[in-house]
């Protein structure tokens, strides 16, 4: 199967480029932006698993990102915990909270679910913003430690942090790939296509939706924890609805319900934002209409656009071969 092989080579090439970048460029600013993008991509994968593969758009995603970040921040800064245990605990805490919220949120459907999660996200933001005693309120949390060295592995330089985040990202992509292409993933997709039908062919929609929701909060929490340890300072704004909207744009532009979408969308929009820096706070003048037009004209984003084109070409080729064969048969 040549397509599978070429896919494999493309993937290896991309990973190689990602590994080589810090060695080829000494521009610390770009390395910083790229590392940050990787963190966003992880969060987008979480959102995509739930919205793209299971059909439930959660607008509380930044809230869970915030919970992950604050969990790491509070455990280390206020709890005096060292980095690694906190780093593993933070996504777990997010997941546990996600489980209980999901249990209730998933009783609602479609628009109700979106509105419900929008409100949950707002409540999380308000709690972080107003509960000064715990979170430091608008002043935020400072002095969050970054990853500490593991034995001989040095993790304190900018390059090392880049590789650390890249490793986590590759792990996440691998996990998502495995999940989506498994029977579990097929169950998610069946629910997205037609929930009633999925249930009538024996899929426990409640269990699968909850699993997808909890997984999505896990990835949000993981991304949040990475963010906190990378930026070292967090404020309530990271759980604001605007972050959810950013993640949504990354996902939709790249391609909702596709495996490559989160990477494509996030990198593209981040690069575009860098190019459009003169717009500063006005970048949504471009990204807002972009979001709306993509969802109207190419609902599965850039990745979906490519896939559609690819399958059409394949089908055409096949038809071509068939007609060729037919004409050959006719001649002889």
């Amino acid at each position: 199967m040549p397509t599978l092989l070429s896919k494999k080579y493309a993937l290896i090439a991309i990973i190689l480029v990602a590994i080589l970048i810090p060695l080829l460029s000494t521009n610390e600013y770009y390395l910083h932006i790229l590392t940050l993008s990787f963190i966003w991509i992880i969060a987008v994968y979480g959102l995509n698993l739930l919205a793209g593969f299971t059909g439930y758009l959660s607008l509380a995603h930044a809230g869970f990102f915030g919970i992950g970040a604050y969990a790491l921040g509070l455990l280390t800064v206020k709890g005096g915990m060292s980095f690694w245990p906190a780093f593993f605990l933070a996504p777990v805490i997010t997941t546990v909270i996600g489980f209980f919220i999901g249990l209730v949120a998933l009783r609602t459907k479609e628009h109700f679910f979106a509105i419900y999660t929008l409100c949950v996200g707002y409540i999380i933001y308000l709690v972080i913003d107003k509960w000064e005693g715990l979170t430091g309120g608008v002043r935020g949390l400072i002095g969050i430690p970054g990853p500490t060295n593991i034995g001989p592995i040095e993790l304190t330089s900018a390059n090392a942090r880049y590789y650390f985040v890249l490793t986590v990202l590759l792990l996440v992509v691998f996990l998502i790939y495995r999940i989506v292409n498994s029977l579990v993933g097929r169950s998610f997709i069946a629910i997205r296509n037609d929930e009633q039908l999925a249930q009538s062919i024996g899929i426990s929609t409640l269990k699968n939706k909850l699993m997808s929701f909890v997984l999505s909060t896990f990835f949000a929490g993981l991304a949040g924890a990475l963010y906190a340890s990378f930026i070292r300072f967090i404020g309530p704004d990271i759980s604001n609805i605007n972050i959810t909207f950013d993640l949504l744009i990354f996902m939709i532009v790249g391609g909702i319900g596709t495996l490559s979408g989160p990477v494509i969308g996030t990198l593209l929009i981040v690069v575009l934002s860098q190019q459009l820096q003169f717009l500063q706070d006005h970048r949504m003048l471009i990204f807002g209409p972009l979001l709306t037009s993509i969802i109207i004209f190419s609902p599965r984003g850039l990745a979906g656009m490519y896939l559609t084109w690819y399958y059409k070409r394949k089908a055409k080729k096949k038809a071509q071969i068939q007609t060729d064969n037919a004409s050959i048969g006719g001649d002889s």
């Binding site: 919205a51 059909g55 758009l57 479609e110 628009h111 979106a114 909207f245 949504l248 939709i252 909702i256 706070d281 006005h282 970048r283 949504m284 003048l285 990204f287 807002g288 209409p289 972009l290 979001l291 709306t292 037009s293 969802i295 109207i296 609902p299």
Partner: peptide, 25 residues
């Protein structure tokens, strides 16, 4: 979008929201 999925409606509306806010800004 009249024949599209509910997610598309919501996302489209959010796009408009972001645009109008940026415009006002």
């Amino acid at each position: 979008l009249r024949d599209s999925t509910p997610i598309q409606h919501k996302v489209a509306a959010i796009g408009v929201l972001l645009f109008l806010e940026a415009l006002a800004h």
